[in-house]
């Protein structure tokens, strides 16, 4: 008789991992990540806290996995969407105006994830800040080609992404017209940065 690993076990592991992510985001939205304990998160994910360690060493590792597996892909998707919607006019800033609605749409689809990442960008856990900084750097390069090299383009790109993320943060807290106004203000600010860098938004 040959005893093999149960394929369903792998799926079950994935399902629980997803449930832990979901529970963390849901609780962090209300109380902030730093205040969460693994027992609370496990119960929210409907697993025994003693089973948590099957999936993560501790809450910090869970948070880092969230950034790597959820935040990174989300930002990549946003930059790809913005690039796809822009006209290839040769300007490195062509995708920038499209990033505003793309980010707002992502926030509308998964507000808890966007809120988590924006909060932890300036939160108290140094490893989270470092990991998010890395994801933002990749997002910046994905959105504005050539911005990884030091110079005016890089400075402008950083200012642009800061405006984008701030606008998304405020947009999350607003609805309807107030949200549209936040997006419009962000576009004006972006135009100013791009003009300052000697270019124009498409």
């Amino acid at each position: 008789m040959v005893v093999r690993a149960n394929p369903e076990k792998k799926e079950e592991k994935e399902r629980i991992r997803h449930a832990l992510f979901h529970a963390t985001l849901s609780l962090a939205s209300a109380h902030g990540f730093a205040s969460l304990g693994l027992r609370e998160v496990s119960r929210e994910a409907l697993i025994a806290p003693t089973s948590f360690y099957r999936h993560f060493e501790d809450m910090e590792q869970l948070g880092l996995a969230l950034i790597d597996e959820k935040v990174g892909p989300l930002l990549r998707e946003v930059s790809e969407t913005a690039r796809a919607r822009s006209r290839a006019d040769g300007s490195p800033f062509a995708a920038v105006p499209h990033a505003v609605p793309a980010l707002f749409e992502a926030a509308a689809d998964d507000g808890a994830l966007v809120r988590f990442f924006l909060a932890e960008r300036v939160g108290g856990i140094a490893r989270f800040r470092g990991a998010i900084e890395g994801e933002i750097a990749r997002f910046t390069t994905g959105l504005i080609a050539g911005s990884d090299a030091p110079g005016t383009l890089q400075s402008a790109a950083r200012a642009i992404v800061a405006v984008l993320l701030d606008a998304t943060f405020f947009g999350l807290e607003r609805e309807g017209e107030a949200r549209a106004e936040t997006a419009a203000t962000a576009l004006v600010q972006l135009e100013m940065i791009v003009r300052g860098a000697g270019s124009t938004l498409a």
Binding site: A48, P49, T50, S51, F52, Y53, R54
Partner: peptide, 13 residues
């Protein structure tokens, strides 16, 4: 040494 997650789960169960 990182204690396997299965051990804590087993202890609880």
């Amino acid at each position: 040494f990182r204690i396997g997650g299965g051990i804590t789960e087993l202890a609880g169960e």
